[in-house]
Amino acid sequence: MDDNSFSTGGGGFSTSGDYSNEGNGSQKFQQQRQSLTPVTIKQINEAQQQVLDGEYQVHNVALSHVSFVGVVRNVQDLTANLAITIEDGTGAIDVKKWIQENDMGSSESDSSSLELNKYVYVTGSLKDFNGKKQLQNTTIRQVTDHNEIIYHNLSAINNHLKAQGITSKAGGQNQQQDLFVKESNQGLSIQDNILAVVRDNSESLQEGVPARFISQHLNISNEVVLENCAILVEEGKIYTGYDDSAYLAV
């Protein structure tokens, strides 16, 4: 009885109960998202927790496991761990790297791989520790191919824009095309056209689409068709039918 009166009596209570339920629900949802988010250090520094002990968020992007690329600016040996200051032009962050006693050899190589003024790729999970942001379970490796810096920054931008709901439409499409540099596919190549013809006719011509049929259809010479079909067969996109000059799509 007491319970009953309690729940009906306090309207405020029941709504706050709903609220916390909602909170749980979203928390569960967030916990399922364990993907590595590419970020800039500025995003990490600006991230805030929506709920106590919850996930860090910045501009609609949830940061649990993050990756970033930056330059090592300072390494401080604190015996049990290394305090590494990393900077990427958007901000700086201190990352702790624990030195494990049982593999001193590899930890030595770790610290030697952390040369000052070199780019490193860092992953870790962003957690709250005594009210301060801390990156836990960090991995740090040196960047050898510096296209990774560009790639990482582009994926961070891409990820951020997607989180803002900017995906398609004019601007977005433009960006998609721009992000994939060089893949300008105005007009399909001969191979693509052949593949399309083979696909379209594979069902009706079950013994294989004859090369002559393709050449007539696309108005190109038989040799060109055979040549390109050989490439497509090698790529595993089509295979020969009963006859060596007749093809079926995979």
């Binding site: 500025k42 501009h59 958007t90 510096h146 296209n147 790639y151 931008i157 960006q175 721009d178």
Partner: peptide
């Protein structure tokens, strides 16, 4: 280094001040 990508990155960086300076 792919300088075509660098150019693109530079132009996008200017458009997302949230992530950069």
């Amino acid at each position: 280094i792919n300088f075509e990508a660098v150019q693109k990155l530079v132009s996008y960086v200017q458009k997302v001040p949230e992530l950069y300076y």
